[in-house]
């Protein structure tokens, strides 16, 4: 499913002293099959944007606002807001939001805090039961839950009757993710999937997401402020700043603008920092900012410039 947003704006608490414009005229297209990253500082509107994708935040019901307004004299007409996920037109009130939510899985920050059921099996099956039109038999439920738990790397037979609250932090998060993907959504959106995990846990989660991307969900969108995560994993990334989209680029292009990113209060990956330092010393390294590629290119450079000496580079 292709995600298209054009001229999307959203304001919290409109017309009150708490009014905050979270999104200002955002236009963004995410192609089917991408592993898309959304980066931005706290309050840049990235979470607000992704909550639109499955209709949790709706465009205000007075849709008139979103149709092109009649232009005042001497003013250009306001462009219409477009928000489409596959065939779902989210600017249309009659859209079937249930069907949409089935196709767009959403994993919130710290998803382990949404676990509630008595057993792991019941918790994972929750979404499945909600979305299915007819009542599913226990066997059908079990086989779907088993598949979802297996893909997140957990053993169904060992865990199914345990309380989700007995599990370790990493296991809880996996169970929570399984509870979202069990309906086999086409698009999977994750808000800070690796937040609060140790480095090993982070790597495992990212590996899990790649596995899901290969076998389970066509499109994966992650929201993050960790640049290393984005540079190592994403096909493209959008930079959000102050409710606007600053740019949309593949990571290898993106981190060439290291200075601009720093200005926006964002960190750049370690490799980009090193590239910038080397550049100051007159050494151009052209890499895609993954650790592997960076090391290879630096070694190549050191070997081909023996006079400068490996130590300095």
């Amino acid at each position: 499913m292709r995600i298209v947003a054009e001229h999307l704006s959203y304001t919290y608490n409109a017309k009150s002293p708490f009014e905050t414009a979270a999104l200002k005229d955002v236009s963004l297209t995410i192609e089917e099959g991408e592993f898309f990253g959304i980066i931005g500082h706290t309050g840049s509107g990235k979470s607000t944007f992704v909550q639109h994708l499955n209709g949790l935040l709706r465009l205000p019901s007075s849709m008139k606002k979103y149709r092109p307004k009649k232009p005042k004299k001497g003013q250009a007409p306001l462009p219409a807001t477009v928000l489409k996920v596959g065939d779902f037109d989210l600017t249309d009130k009659k859209t079937n939001f249930r069907a949409l939510r089935r196709s767009v899985g959403m994993v919130f920050q710290y998803p382990e805090y949404q676990l509630f059921a008595e057993t792991v099996r019941d918790d994972v099956a929750f979404g499945l039961k909600n979305f299915s039109e007819e009542k599913l038999t226990d066997e059908e439920l079990d086989s779907a839950v088993r598949a979802a738990l297996e893909v997140v790397g957990l053993d169904f037979d060992e865990l199914k009757d345990k309380s989700p609250f007995e599990l370790s932090g990493g296991q809880k998060r996996r169970v929570a993710i399984a509870g979202v993907i069990v309906t086999r959504p086409e698009v999977l959106v994750l808000d800070e999937p690796a937040a609060g995990l140790d480095p090993l846990g982070k790597r495992e989660i990212m590996e899990l997401l790649h596995r899901l991307h290969r076998e389970w969900c066509k499109t994966v969108v992650i929201v993050s402020h960790d640049m290393d995560e984005i540079s190592e994993n994403c096909t493209r990334a959008a930079v959000f700043a102050d409710g606007r989209v600053e740019c949309v680029l593949p990571p290898r292009e993106l981190f060439r603008h290291a200075q601009r990113l720093t200005e926006l209060g964002l960190d750049v990956p370690l490799t980009a920092k090193l590239c910038a330092l080397l550049q100051e010393r007159g050494i151009e390294i052209d890499c895609d900012f993954t650790v592997q590629d960076f090391c290879a290119k630096v070694l190549d450079y050191a070997r081909s410039h023996p006079k400068q000496g490996g130590g300095r580079a």
Binding site: R101, Q114, F126
Partner: peptide, 27 residues
């Protein structure tokens, strides 16, 4: 936040009778 997360998993808090609504708040 929790409400949103459960709605993303298809929870329905609006329809149904009073008993169904009360049950729906457990998650």
């Amino acid at each position: 936040r929790i409400r949103n997360a459960q709605m993303a998993r298809g929870a329905d808090f609006e329809s149904g009778g009073i008993i169904k609504k009360v049950k729906a708040t457990i998650p």
